[in-house]
């Protein structure tokens, strides 16, 4: 009896250990590129391809980081990225909340069609409309400007859908009660809707922030002068200028990875559940 239970327990232990080893192996394989990026960023250019591979450089060149930061003028691009991403995020959150509330809490002619139209834009990624969108922005005189980077991406179907979903789960009685108490439409939205919806607002804000900060294509098309460029553009132009300076390239890449990594570790729950529930990013 007791030996049988011990055998069962042993087998369970063995299975768990095998599973752990397998998971550890896969995780290591997935993380090797990132580790390699950081490890190379601390080497000198002559020793990049040394064999056997030095995973931990014997004399780490920490000075690569200040050099990379200064060479790329990171501060300027960080400020630009912050301006663009901040504006896009705020606009998206406000507009998504309004539209989500309108679609969830009001009955009006054509709201089903409206919802379908908004859904349909999910099939219209930037890359499909980049040519006419570029011409439109050129026509508006917004090339090489902040508004050119911000306004065209300031409304996003995903944000609207997430907010609508959230407001649908909000009991109508609450809103009816506020109306009976004499609150106006905007007042009810601001005093009842927004405070109750802050978890959804936060998730939308984080997802939009992340995808906007990470976006390369649209700023790349719109911006031609370095003074307006965002971090991804700076990284790309450094890469095309310094193709073979691997330690510097990796240091620049590591620095550029810091903001989104910090964001991920702070808002891990929202980011993962956001990706999981919407099944979409960007």
């Amino acid at each position: 009896m007791s030996s049988a239970t011990t055998a069962v327990r042993l087998r369970a232990h063995a299975a768990t250990i095998a599973l752990l080893l397998l998971l550890t192996g896969v995780t290591v394989v997935f993380l090797v590129p990132i580790f390699w990026m950081v490890s190379t960023s601390l080497k000198s250019n002559q020793h990049v391809f040394d064999l056997p591979i030095q995973w931990f450089p014997r004399r780490p060149l920490w000075s690569n980081y200040p050099t990379a930061y200064a060479t790329v003028h990171f501060t300027r691009y960080l400020v630009n990225s912050a301006i663009v991403t901040g504006s896009v995020t705020i606009l998206n959150v406000v507009l998504s909340a309004l539209a989500g509330y309108g679609l969830a809490k009001y009955r009006f002619l054509g709201r089903h069609v409206l919802l379908l139209l908004i859904l349909a834009t999910l099939m219209l990624p930037l890359e499909v409309v980049m040519v006419p969108l570029y011409l439109t922005v050129q026509h508006l005189g917004w090339l090489n400007s902040y508004q050119g980077m911000v306004v065209p991406v300031s409304a996003n179907a995903l944000g609207v859908l997430m907010m609508r979903q959230y407001f649908l789960s909000l009991p109508d009685d609450l809103i009816a009660a506020a109306h009976i108490d004499g609150a106006g439409h905007l007042g009810t939205f601001l005093r009842i809707g927004v405070p109750l919806a802050w978890p959804a607002l936060l998730t939308v804000a984080i997802l939009i922030f992340q995808s906007t900060w990470d976006d390369f294509v649209w700023p790349f098309l719109v911006i031609s002068s370095p003074s307006k460029a965002t971090v991804p553009l700076a990284v790309q132009s450094f890469q095309s200028a310094e193709t073979s300076n691997f330690p510097m390239l990796m240091a620049v890449s590591s620095i550029a990875s810091v903001p989104l990594t910090v964001l991920f570790f702070v808002f891990q729950r929202q980011i993962i559940s956001g990706v999981a529930t919407t099944g979409m990013r960007h």
Binding site: L98, A99, G102, L103, Y106, D172, H185
Partner: peptide, 14 residues
């Protein structure tokens, strides 16, 4: 349906 039905406001929000 307990929520507001004023069509203009719904459209305005969207």
């Amino acid at each position: 349906w307990l929520g507001p039905t004023q069509p203009w406001w719904g459209a305005a929000f969207t």
